[in-house]
Computed example of a mutant assay.
Amino acid sequence: MSQSDWFQAYKSAAQFLIAGPCSAETFEQVLETGLALRQQSVDFFRAGVWKPRTRPGGFEGVGEVALPWLAEVKKQTGLKIAIEVASPAHVEAAEQFDIDMYWIGARTTANPFAVQELANALQGSNKIVLLKNPVNPDLSLWIGGYERLQNAAIQSLGVIHRGFSTYPKSKYRNSPEWQIAIDFRRELPDVPMICDPSHMAGKREYLAELTDIALNLHYDGFMIESHPNPDAAWSDAAQQLTPAALEAFMRNRKKAVAETTNTEYLEAIRLWRSQIDVTDALLLELLGKRMAISEKIGILKKNYGISVLQNDRWMKVLEHMQSQGQQNNLSDSFIRIFFKAIHEESIRKQVNAKSEG
């Protein structure tokens, strides 16, 4: 039996969906939300019981007292229940209330010791366990965390992509870094991957664009936060939707198919891709020429005793390129990432040229 077999029961025309409030605040709040979501195509009801926060002083969840509330939600709605666990003590407490799914949060995933402790506590478990990506953009750490759970013979596993904390910040709360998720799927193609656009977005107005990208990347489902009165939520108010808004939101999302046999499409995409291939080859040729110039600059700097890094020059280049990028309909974030990579490679070339020249 594969550890991804559990997901076969949820593969359908409808979108696999985990939904519910960021935090369980009161019994009335979780029950009201659960009753509203029961009318929709929600597969699991989520609610934060323990809330690990970046800094002290924020709302950190009501704790164990919420577990019987969720058990009652399950009883009255028939919805399966999902919560976050961050320690063996959380697992032990949750086991008393027939919780169906556990997820391991991004801050916990970043700590291999913590993941291993949870793997030990969940050894051989028949619960569904989902591992969020680590808070920092580290593919190996994410895969390593999954492997720890896999080695613990947990019967049902999957992962959640919720975005990464990066510097500088973008408009999103957590940068999606889609390529890391794509690379994870390339390494472990059979692992169900759920997208959490709520934690990526940080603001509900960005949910649609992120969810639509995830649909086009063929994610297996979504975890989206929903609260009966989002503006009054005790945590993450800006990123939650009311149950009614969530229903409309999901109704407007359309799955994209992976392949087609339509000959008109196949011929058109072949022509466009051939143009991309030629353009990419030209880009690489230009980058090679640019780096050859960087090597010459490195030798010149060595001859005159000049340091490689010229920060004022770099900031002027970046500012100019972002302005040029806007004229070519390229986002500031793309230009910043692209030219940062070019700048780092240029520095490496200049340093090598200075040491070898």
Rank of each mutant, 00 (worst) to 15 (best):
M1C: 09
S4R: 08
D5M: 10
K11R: 12
A13G: 13
F16R: 00
A19V: 04
C22Q: 05
L37D: 02
R38N: 06
Q39I: 06
Q40Y: 08
F44T: 02
K51N: 03
R53T: 05
P56E: 02
G58E: 10
G58A: 12
F59S: 05
E60Q: 04
V62P: 01
G63L: 01
E64W: 03
V65D: 00
V65H: 01
L70G: 07
E72N: 13
V73L: 13
V73P: 08
K75W: 10
G78H: 09
E84M: 10
A86N: 12
P88R: 08
H90I: 02
E92M: 07
A93Y: 06
A94N: 00
Q96P: 07
I99S: 06
G105N: 05
P112K: 02
F113S: 13
L118M: 12
N126W: 08
V129H: 03
N136T: 10
L139H: 05
W142K: 04
N151D: 15
N151M: 13
A152W: 03
A153T: 11
A153K: 14
L157G: 06
H161M: 01
R162C: 11
G163V: 03
G163I: 00
F164D: 00
T166F: 02
K171Y: 04
K171F: 03
E177D: 11
I180R: 02
A181V: 04
R186P: 06
P192I: 07
P192N: 08
I194N: 01
D196V: 03
D196Y: 02
G202K: 06
R204K: 13
R204F: 08
L207Q: 00
A214C: 08
L215A: 01
G221W: 00
M223S: 03
M223N: 02
P228S: 14
N229G: 09
P230V: 11
P230F: 12
A233Y: 07
W234Y: 14
S235I: 14
A237C: 13
A238L: 11
Q239F: 03
Q240V: 15
L241F: 05
T242Q: 12
T242P: 09
T242K: 13
P243S: 14
L246D: 06
R251T: 15
N252F: 10
K254T: 14
A256C: 07
E259G: 11
T261A: 12
T263K: 15
A268K: 15
W272L: 15
D280P: 07
E285N: 13
E285W: 11
M291W: 13
E295Q: 09
E295A: 10
I297F: 04
K301P: 05
K301T: 07
G305A: 13
R313H: 13
K316I: 13
V317W: 09
H320K: 15
G325D: 05
N328H: 04
N329K: 07
S333C: 06
F339L: 14
K340N: 09
S346T: 07
K349S: 07
G357W: 01
